Structures are given as C-alpha cells and as structure tokens.
Simulated scan of single mutants.
Amino acid sequence: MRHPASWKVELVDKVAKEIDNAGTVAIVDIHGLRNNQFQSIRRDVRGDLNIRVMRLTLLLKALEKSKKPGLADLSKEVRGQVALVTTNSEPVSVNNVLRKKRQMMSPRGGETASDDIVVPEGETSFPPGPMISEFQKAGLQTAIEKGKIVIKKESVVVKKGEVISKERASLLQKLDIKPIEVGLNLRAAYSSGTIFTSDVLSISPESLSLDIAMSFSRAKTLALEAGFLVPEIIPDMIVRARIIAESLSLKAGIVDESSIQLFILKAIQEASAVQEAIGSEKESSGKETKKGEKEAKSESTDEDVSAGLSSLFG
C-alpha cells in the first residue's frame, strides 16, 4: 500500500489544527484574481485573516480531520479555485473585510461584462497612427485635434453579459479603463456549528434594521386591526379607543368634562358655517339689488330718450 508523502501528512495536520483553533472558517473563491493582486490582499489582511491556498484534496482532508461539529457541509464549497480562511473574527466581519479589498482591473479577454463597458468621449494620449484603425474597429468616432486622437462620442464597446474579446480587452488596457472587479469572494463561512452562505452575510446592518422596523410596524398594524392585545400596541389602542369614544359622545350629545371642549369646537365650527352662509346670502342679495337698480335706471333712460325724440318730431 502506497503511503502519502510526509509533507502532505504534516500539512493536513497543521491545517486541521488551524481550523480547530479558529472561531470562523471560510472558503473563498479566488478565480480570476491575479497573483500580485492576491498577494496584495493577503498582506493587507494579515493579522486579521489567515489565507491559505493548497491542493483541494489536501484541503478536504484537513476539513475532514477537524474536530469541529458540522464542518463537513463546508466541504461542498471546495471546488474550482478556492482558498481557506481561518480567523477569530465573526463571519460578517470577514465578508465585509474581503468586500472592501476588492479591486478594479482591466480585462485580459474571456471575462463576462457585469455591466455595459463604456469608452468616454475626450482626448486620448495617442498621436495619429495605427490606433485610429483600432478605435474605428471598436465603433468609436474619432478626430485629430492638436496632434492627438480625440474620441468624439461616448460609446458602449461591450454590452452587459457579453464575453470580452481579446481585441476589446487590449483596447481597454491601452485606454486604462478598468471595468472588471476582482477580489476574494466568500462562498461560505462556518462559525459555532453553523454554515453561513455569502447571500446571508451580504445583508448590511442598515438594510437589516430597516427590514426589522418595517416588519414591526406591519405587525403592530395587524395586531391593532385584529384587536390582539400585546404590550406594544396598548398605547395605540388607548388612543384609538379615545377617538372612538369622543366621536360617539359628539353624535349622542353627551357632555362631560372630557368632551366639553369638543362640543365648544363643534359649536364654533357650526357658527362659522352659519356666518359664512349669511354673508354669502347678503352678498347675493346685494348683487340682485344693484342689478335691479341698474335695470330700472336703464329703462328710465330709454323713456327719456323716447320723449326727447317725440318732442323733436312732434
């Protein structure tokens, strides 16, 4: 029977101990991340996160050898290009740290555009020459101004969801356009016997607080409408009961110390309404009187004119 190399056994034992001593164990996706970018992120988080890249078979054995209960489910995420993260930070903190370390880079070709890739209008650093042809192939409108190639109109060179060709990637590199976001993508994290997936860990505290507040408000409304008595809605029920009682008191004409102000307000409103009605009636009556006087005056004038004409032609 062939025995595994001693260095493999030692590595598996070492990683298994790291896993057992860590509060949080995570699997992160490193696909598409260039080595210099990976090393940069690794240096930045050193001291907080321990990131280890190793053969998948050895990583699976280390997870299997760990004594943590329920860790086996994390093995499902060990596929493709991944790394192991061990830390004493909470899973949410791990995810937040990794998200902050994401970087933008120019494509190399073969990537899928997550959004439309746009080349803005403006002057480039290129003099007239072969680049004009390359710009034209990409569908860019160009002109020569002050010895430089100028892009006259903003244009989409790769649409969302399309695969970026090597030609487009080369053009974007030359223009120093970096539309590709790369970093360590957390697939899942283990902590205290529970596996947390990336979608759960991506929920921000702000959105969580907002969701809780909205749910609480809806629950209060439902409890109030159903008359389900719980401490949280007692103040609202008291206010609602008082409003209903005051309304019934007004309709029934029941006057007491608590409702007398309402009756006074009601009397004032009714008096104001009557006063407005009287004012409107007076105004209407005044207009009718003036109209009658005007018509009478007009008739008198007509009679005077007729009398004058009669005297002339007697």
Rank of each mutant, 00 (worst) to 15 (best):
R42H: 06
Q37W: 01
V163W: 00
S215K: 02
A26M: 07
V15A: 04
A252Y: 06
M214C: 01
R187I: 06
G32N: 07
K287M: 10
G193Y: 04
W7M: 11
P120N: 06
S106P: 14
R218A: 01
V25Q: 08
S306A: 12
L262C: 01
Q269C: 01
D20A: 01
A5D: 09
V12P: 11
S207P: 07
I149T: 07
E299G: 01
A189C: 09
A188L: 00
I144Q: 07
R2V: 12
V119I: 09
V25H: 01
F126M: 04
K220M: 04
N96H: 12
S259R: 13
G308D: 12
E10S: 13
A223D: 09
P235C: 03
R99I: 09
G227K: 08
L222F: 04
K76W: 01
T197S: 14
R52C: 09
G122R: 05
L71R: 00
N95L: 02
T221W: 08
G129C: 08
S198A: 12
P128W: 00
S75T: 10
T221K: 14
L229E: 14
A26Q: 08
L71T: 00
R43D: 05
K297C: 02
S6M: 12
S259Y: 08
R108K: 02
P179F: 10
E270G: 00
I149A: 02
D73K: 07
A223E: 05
R52M: 14
A226K: 10
V157H: 09
E18N: 06
T301P: 14
N88F: 00
E288N: 06
V239P: 14
G32Y: 12
L171Q: 05
N96S: 14
A83F: 00
M237W: 03
D199K: 10
P120W: 00
L184V: 00
S125N: 05
G32K: 04
A213R: 07
R2I: 13
K178V: 03
D256W: 10
M105E: 11
N96V: 11
I233C: 13
L312Q: 04
P4Q: 02
K67H: 13
Q136C: 03
S165K: 01
I132R: 15
V97S: 08
V274Q: 13
